[in-house]
Write a protein that binds this DNA or RNA. Structure first.
Lengths: 228, 228
DNA sequence: CACTTCTATGACGAAAGAATGACATTGCGG
DNA sequence: CCGCAATGTCATTCTTTCGTCATAGAAGTG
């Protein structure tokens, strides 16, 4: 699942087209044709992006946009506005109201898809690969945080780099020398045995009682982190 | 000054048009027609957004985009690509390469302006006059005021910029050098340890007894401000 | 089993990194 | 001109982390 997209569009055919395309890209899609309902759905479960038609029944799209931006909870949701008109004024109003992108009908579905992708990339960096995962372990390189089963773990700088090194190379056996080169730097004159000690510290830090140890010792070769 | 925009465009007339329009909107504009030079200019002083023509001499725009995205330092700069062609493939490639928006010539200057504004709103919220928030801390960039739980706080100029710098990058760990570049300016020859001192002053200024400290120290890496 | 080879572990001193308090300097408004 | 706030640097203290070693343990080998 790449993320959740809310489609607000009252033209049934178009709505289905969008839903189909987005689903095919791996997004979870929820849809409605009604502005009021859209606002409710956003509060119920925050989507990662919203595609919002300008001309929908009851509440105009721009009003939905305004409402969303006004509320602190929803002010940051990326919004892509969709309109039949080619009026420049409309577009400008859309942007001024807080829309992040604006596409006019008729549009190419592929264009819409890449634009949605661009929005998500900016709004949710975590969707674009800055977070490494191994089973229930998450490592976020940007925020320098590691969690296991949601619980934050405390790792020293070297343990952090070591874990990242392994998570970037799942299933691969690496020698101590390779680890030294990759984690300490090519020119480190550190004893190979020191790697053992850091492996132990890393294990101690990430394994709570009952957990399975992600790091496999390969005798006479090195270590590896297996996919679960 | 609303922010700095780098225009990369080798059509002199168009370049001037863009420069003029952007300047009129209050942006500080720098311009070049050369891709290599553009990369240098970005490293020299990080702009808040880049308008990048697809067809420029020597290095194609898309290559500039790729280079920028590859480097961790510049990976976050918003890029708006500009092209004469109407080819959908080009557009998709542009987005896939990491562009944030894409406009085809001929375009309306006003459209370009609002799109740039939308990009900046996401990337540098403080430039658009909005109020940044972190839990019960509010920072109003335009009036230079900071409150916590409604109580006004007194920050020195540097502490203010430092706090704004962090609030624009929630959850992100930034090195002392990055902080120096972003808060003091790219060419400051200030000791890295001085950052520590200002962090302390900032902490002292915003944390009243019983408050949680928003600033996390990341040993051997820098600091980060976590979302509550 | 006896032996060799490799790994895990606990302890410890050294070093690194960060927090803190103090101080000199600068710029500004009164 | 003086006082005050802001700023950059330094020395000191404090905490965390690192690298090594000695020893115990485990895994191959013949």
């Amino acid at each position: 699942m790449n993320g959740t997209v809310l489609v607000v569009e009252d033209d049934t055919a178009l709505c289905e087209l969008l839903t189909w395309n987005l689903s095919a890209e791996g997004y979870e899609v929820r849809a409605t044709g009604d502005g009021e309902e859209a606002l409710l759905m956003v509060r119920e479960q925050m989507p990662d992006a919203i595609i919002l038609d300008w001309m929908i029944e009851q509440v105009p799209g721009i009003e939905v946009c305004r409402q969303l931006r006004k509320d602190k909870e929803t002010a940051q949701v990326p919004i892509l506005m969709l309109t039949a008109r080619g009026e420049e004024e409309d577009m400008i109003r859309g942007f001024k109201t807080g829309a992040d992108d604006y596409v006019t009908k008729p549009f190419s579905p592929r264009e819409l898809l890449v634009r949605v992708e661009a929005l998500l990339r900016r709004a949710r960096p975590s969707l674009t690969g800055s977070v490494l995962q191994w089973g229930d372990i998450e490592l976020d390189a940007t925020s320098h945080r590691v969690r296991r089963g949601g619980e934050p773990l405390h790792l020293g700088p070297t343990e952090f780099r070591l874990l990242r090194y392994f998570m970037e190379r799942p299933n691969r056996v690496v020698s101590r020398q390779q680890i030294l080169d990759g984690v300490w730097g090519m020119d480190s004159d550190i004893d190979e045995r020191t790697v053992d000690v850091h492996i132990r510290r890393l294990r101690k830090a990430i394994n709570r009682p009952g957990d399975t140890d992600p790091i496999r010792t390969v005798r006479a070769a090195g270590y590896a982190m297996d996919v679960s």
